[in-house]
Amino acid sequence: MQNKVDVAVMIGSGVPHALRALGQKACWVVLLNGEQRGTAFASRDEAEECRAAWQALMRLEQSDSLH
Rank of each mutant, 00 (worst) to 15 (best):
W28K: 00
A47K: 00
K25R: 14
E48R: 13
Q24W: 02
S13P: 01
C27D: 04
A53N: 09
P16F: 08
A8I: 04
S63D: 13
C50W: 05
V5Y: 10
R37C: 08
G14V: 00
P16R: 12
A47G: 10
L32P: 01
P16H: 11
A21H: 11
E48F: 02
R20C: 01
Q36C: 10
M58H: 07
H17A: 10
C27S: 15
E46C: 07
L60K: 15
V29M: 10
R59V: 10
A53V: 11
G23A: 06
H67D: 14
A26G: 00
N3H: 12
A40S: 15
A26N: 11
V29L: 09
Q55Y: 01
G38Q: 05
A56C: 04
F41V: 05
Q62H: 10
E48P: 03
A53H: 11
V9D: 05
S63K: 11
M1N: 03
A8M: 03
R20A: 03
V9R: 12
Q2P: 13
A52Y: 00
G12N: 11
R51G: 01
L32M: 10
K25N: 08
E49L: 12
L19F: 08
H17P: 01
L60R: 15
G14P: 01
R59N: 13
G34Y: 05
E35I: 06
G38T: 07
A52L: 12
A42F: 00
H17V: 12
R37P: 00
A26L: 12
R37M: 11
A56R: 15
R44H: 11
A26P: 00
Q36S: 09
V5L: 02
R37I: 14
C50G: 00
G14R: 06
E35K: 13
F41E: 04
K25T: 15
L19A: 03
W54A: 00
A53P: 01
V5M: 00
T39A: 11
A56V: 04
R59C: 09
E35H: 07
G38Y: 00
S13D: 15
E48A: 09
G12E: 13
R20W: 12
R37Y: 05
S13K: 13
Q36V: 14
L22M: 13
C50F: 08
Q36K: 14
R44D: 08
D6H: 10
D64F: 05
G14F: 01
S65F: 03
W54M: 14
